[in-house]
C-alpha cells in the first residue's frame, strides 16, 4: 500500500510541477506563465518555507522573481524542462487540494533534482531577504542611517544571570 501511495504521489507531483511551466511540448521550450501556474508555484514556495504569519505577498513576489529568471534564461528553462521530462498533463487542481503533508512528501521525492534545488535556492534568498520576513524574525537590517546599533540596543540584553 505504501508503495502504491508513493507512486501515486510521485505521479501527481510530476504533474503538478509540469503545470508550473505551463506545459512543455516535445523538443521545445515554452515559458508562458498563466495566473494558475504562478499560483501553484507560489504554493510550492510556501511549502518550502511556510511562515503562516508572513504576508502572502512575499511568496507572490518571490514567485514573480523566479518566473522572471526562468523566462530570461534558456538554461534555466531547459533545467525545468528536464525536471518534467517524459511527462504530460496538468494537475494544478489536484495539487491545490492536497493536504500539506502530502505536498511535503511529494516535494521530498524530487528534492535532489536540479529543478528543485534551483527553486529552493531562489526561494531561500527571496524569502529571507524580504523586509517583511526580517520583521517577522526580528532582524532590523541596516542601522547605518540611524548611527549604527551602538545607540540602538547592541548590548541591551537583560535576561542573563548575574
Amino acid at each position: 500500500m505504501a508503495m502504491k501511495r508513493r507512486e501515486f504521489l510521485r505521479l501527481n507531483i510530476n504533474l503538478a510541477l509540469l503545470s508550473l511551466c505551463g506545459g512543455v511540448g516535445a523538443g521545445e521550450i515554452a515559458i508562458p506563465w498563466s495566473g494558475n501556474d504562478k499560483k501553484t508555484l507560489a504554493d510550492v514556495l510556501y511549502q518550502l518555507f511556510p511562515h503562516p504569519r508572513l504576508n502572502k505577498d512575499v511568496y507572490k513576489q518571490v514567485t514573480e522573481q523566479i518566473s522572471h529568471k526562468i523566462a530570461q534564461s534558456n538554461e534555466l528553462a531547459s533545467m525545468m524542462k528536464n525536471a518534467m521530462d517524459g511527462l504530460t498533463g496538468n494537475s494544478r487542481e489536484k495539487w491545490s487540494m492536497l493536504p500539506p503533508r502530502d505536498k511535503t512528501e511529494l516535494l521530498e521525492e524530487i528534492q535532489h533534482t536540479p529543478f528543485f534545488q534551483f527553486v529552493l535556492n531562489e526561494t531561500l534568498s527571496g524569502v529571507y531577504r524580504h523586509p517583511d520576513t526580517w520583521k517577522l524574525l526580528g532582524f532590523e537590517g541596516s542601522s547605518l542611517e540611524f548611527g549604527g546599533y551602538i545607540n540602538r540596543g547592541f548590548n541591551d540584553i537583560d535576561w542573563l544571570p548575574e
Binding site: L48, F49, L107, L120, S125
Partner: peptide
C-alpha cells in the same frame, strides 16, 4: 536571516525548519 537559513541546516526546508 538569509545566511542563517543557508548555513544552519543547509538544504533543509519545510515546516520544522521555518
Amino acid at each position: 536571516p538569509e545566511s542563517m537559513a543557508r548555513f544552519l541546516k543547509p538544504g533543509s526546508w519545510g515546516q520544522a525548519y521555518a
